[in-house]
Each structure stands twice: as structure tokens, then as C-alpha cells.
């Protein structure tokens, strides 16, 4: 919890300089000294925020989060011209150091897993059939499988899953030649034959 020490010192200095607030410059609280910015977009304790289209981070596996931050940083993700949400995320990650990424992953790990609210409605029965292809990697309960590099899907914001599946199908995500896992998803997402199938499979994941 190294962050808190810094924060306390900052607050103290804030109080000291309170009296002369108007004199020069900003209030006496120094600006963020770390890269813990995630909650502004991803919601309090990383619950996700549909208005920003920023998915839930609470409960996301450390290894998956790390890989995605690294991919964003390297431009492996978030550089395709049609990946609107990815493009928005990329600049946030572009300057992160390895230490920052480790710190963020630690921090996110503190947040409690809260399953996201369901907003997508499709044909769950058909979705279940389609999900068999996903289950091989992501697990029968969409609980994820680190060994295969497949993250948990259960509990994630369904609107986010929808966007990502659509992006994989269209090649907006996963087309970068160094995106090993992403390119597998491009292939696998093709088993979903149309957009309705995407909606159905997400609806089924909502039941898990």
C-alpha cells in the first residue's frame, strides 16, 4: 500500500497551504503521482461504466489484465481504425511503465468481484449451443482458463462482450500479427455466423 503514504503527505501539505490558496497556482494538493487512473473511466472499484463503454475490471484475472495493458501499450490492441473503444483506451496505456502496470494490476486485485447487470437479451437456448465452441477454452461456466490464455467471461459487462465479439468477427481486434491470442479469437468468433448468434451467445453467458 505504498500509495497511501504519499497520499497522506500530500493531504497534509494541502492543509498547510490552504490559507494561501488564492495566492498562486493550484490548491496545495499535488496531482496524482501514480498511474492509478482506471476508476475515472471504469467506475468506482472497477464496476464498469456503460456511458464510457469501459468494462468491468473488478474480478478480472491479473494475468489477463496485465497482458491487455501490455498489448495496448505496444499497439497490439487499440490501433485498428475501427476499434473505437480500443482507440480510446490505447493512449491511456501508451506511457505506462512495467512498474505502473504491476501496480495497477495489484490495485485492481483489491476490488471485489461483482457480477455485472444483464442488458442483452437474445435466444439463450441457441446461445448455449453456440457456446460449446467457447467452452473449450473459456470453460463450461465461462470461468476462464489461464493455461489457455482465455479469460473469464461470466460476470463481465454483456455490452462489452458484444462489442468485443463483433470486433473479433470483423477483424477490428485480433488482426495485429503479434496478437497471438487475439488471432485465435478472430478464428473462433467466425463460428458465430451472424450478429444474432453473437447476441445469443452473450445472452447465454449472462446465465452462467
Amino acid at each position: 500500500m505504498k500509495k497511501f503514504v504519499t497520499a497522506t503527505t500530500l493531504i497534509l501539505s494541502a492543509l498547510c497551504s490552504m490559507a494561501s490558496l488564492a495566492a498562486e497556482g493550484d490548491v496545495g494538493v499535488a496531482a496524482a503521482m501514480d498511474d492509478r487512473y482506471c476508476t475515472t473511466c471504469h467506475g468506482a472499484e472497477g464496476i464498469g461504466n456503460i456511458a464510457i463503454e469501459a468494462p468491468r475490471l473488478a474480478g478480472m484475472e491479473a494475468w489477463y489484465l496485465k497482458r491487455q495493458l501490455e498489448n495496448f501499450r505496444a499497439g497490439i490492441r487499440g490501433t485498428h481504425g475501427e476499434d473505437i473503444q480500443g482507440i480510446a483506451m490505447r493512449p491511456m496505456a501508451a506511457k505506462l511503465s512495467d512498474e505502473s502496470i504491476a501496480d495497477i494490476v495489484d490495485w485492481v486485485g483489491d476490488w471485489e468481484y461483482v457480477a455485472a447487470e444483464a442488458t442483452v437479451e437474445g435466444n439463450v437456448r441457441q446461445g448455449r449451443t453456440a457456446f460449446q465452441a467457447c467452452a473449450a477454452c473459456h470453460g463450461a461456466n465461462a470461468q476462464g482458463n489461464e493455461a489457455l490464455g482465455a479469460p473469464a467471461l461470466a460476470g463481465q459487462n454483456d455490452w462489452y462482450l458484444l462489442t468485443q465479439l463483433r470486433n473479433f468477427r470483423a477483424g477490428f481486434r485480433g488482426s495485429h500479427q503479434e496478437d497471438t491470442f487475439g488471432s485465435q479469437m478472430v478464428t473462433m468468433s467466425k463460428t458465430l455466423t451472424d450478429d444474432q448468434a453473437v447476441i445469443n451467445v452473450v445472452s447465454y453467458i449472462n446465465t452462467l
Binding site: 500530500l10 498562486e24 497556482g25 493550484d26 490548491v27 494538493v29 499535488a30 496531482a31 496524482a32 487512473y37 475515472t40 473511466c41 493512449p91 491511456m92 496505456a93 501508451a94 506511457k95
Partner: peptide
């Protein structure tokens, strides 16, 4: 760390706390 939201003046010493572009 500062008050005022969108009423924001930048001068010597001010931090622009833009995410990913501090």
C-alpha cells in the same frame, strides 16, 4: 487534486492531469 472542474487555469507549476498525458 484541484477544485473547479472545467474552470481551470494553467500557469507555471500547474499540472494538467490528462489521463496518459500528464
Amino acid at each position: 487534486h484541484r477544485p473547479g472542474g472545467r474552470m481551470f487555469t494553467v500557469r507555471s507549476g500547474t499540472v494538467i492531469d490528462e489521463i496518459g498525458n500528464y
